[in-house]
Design a protein around this nucleic acid. Structure first.
Lengths: 193, 193
DNA sequence: CGACGGACTTGACACTGTCAGGGCGCGGCT
DNA sequence: AGCCGCGCCCTGACAGTGTCAAGTCCGTCG
């Protein structure tokens, strides 16, 4: 039965940051929403950070799903990259607070939470494979193309989330994000097709 | 005399986040370091966010100085972009906590702090001019090149700060960052020189 | 001299994360 | 049957936080 309480706390925590941003989360408020005492969460998580780490893990698993779904429908290698970049940005926009949490070292030090780290690594590997073009898991010969794709997708997502882009252009649909991403990418990786 | 207290509070606040990260800042601790009571800061700033907004403003002015200094020593347009990108990343690495603060919407909503916003806009314009190649202040015809440069520099900086890159490669000197940035950029903007 | 207002103080409130120390019910052992 | 232990959850306390309210001192001006 106790799994109910555990999942209720996680659910409440996610709702809090989803609805009102990262600052809206607190252990006591999450406990309140789960209809338990303010100490009940400590039975399942040693501290606040571990609750957030669990959200981060779920987040990276969702991101993985977004990206692999996006890329699976693509034919060429270029289309795969475009779809993955668009999926990355779409995930960030659809889960703003969670995305921020996933990339906030001081809130969740991923080195202390192996399961979250593993999920993050799986997402990273998906991206590497899409760039390198095979499921090779050995050394990375030239990191520049990977960095290019990742930093563009992450940079666009971060700047958009922090409100630095919408005074340049207003709201954007996922379709438009895909175009923007691939346009930026092509400004960079031209001789591929 | 009272300007002393004001600057002492700002100095203490910056030291706090510099030394121990964003979470280390609190009004009361800053007041303690400035040897004033916990309410003295309220005489100069209406609330916590406004103190941080002042740090953000100084931060963007520093970033502007980094970038203009970097680009002034360059001859070609390409070199200018490389130097500005390197300066952007170098600033982020040398002022980790401050850089994060500057791009954290929920900590400092820049829309509520016109001076901070103005400083941010000046930095942005510097980048635009370096990309477009003139001091034109009219419409932006094609945003893709600007987005490319900005998102790559910002993406690299953000991923590095959040510890996502050093397991790929270890520490990097500014020289190496310049090479990485221009390499990534050239993977993207090839036919320029 | 006395009122005033700027610069700063002490005190309080509700909120937070976390430590300490309970209680209650159920399973297993003697 | 009686007791013990333990999983599960609770109440209580503590130091820390941001901010509101009210007070004190002191120089300036009428």
């Amino acid at each position: 039965m106790s799994e109910d309480v555990r999942t209720a706390i996680l659910k409440a925590s996610l709702e809090l940051i989803d609805e009102n941003g990262l600052r809206a989360f607190s252990m006591r408020e999450a406990a309140r929403r789960a209809h338990v005492s303010h100490q009940a969460p400590y039975h399942y998580f040693p501290d606040r950070e571990t609750i957030l780490a669990e959200l981060v893990r779920n987040g990276f698993e969702q991101l993985h799903a977004y990206m692999s779904e996006g890329s699976s429908a693509a034919d060429t290698a270029d289309e795969r990259l475009e779809s993955m970049g668009e999926a990355y940005i779409r995930f960030a926009i659809e889960h703003r607070a969670l995305f921020r949490l996933m990339f906030r070292d001081e809130m969740v030090d991923i080195g202390h939470h192996p399961e979250a780290k593993a999920a993050a690594d799986r997402s990273f590997r998906l991206l590497v494979e899409a760039v390198v073009g095979s499921n090779l898991s050995g050394e990375i010969a030239d990191p520049a193309p990977i960095l290019a794709v990742w930093s563009i997708a992450h940079g666009l997502a971060a700047l958009e989330l922090e409100g630095k882009l919408q005074h340049l252009f207003g709201e954007r649909t996922p379709q438009e994000w895909k175009r923007i991403f691939s346009q930026v990418l092509r400004t960079v990786i031209p001789a591929r097709g």
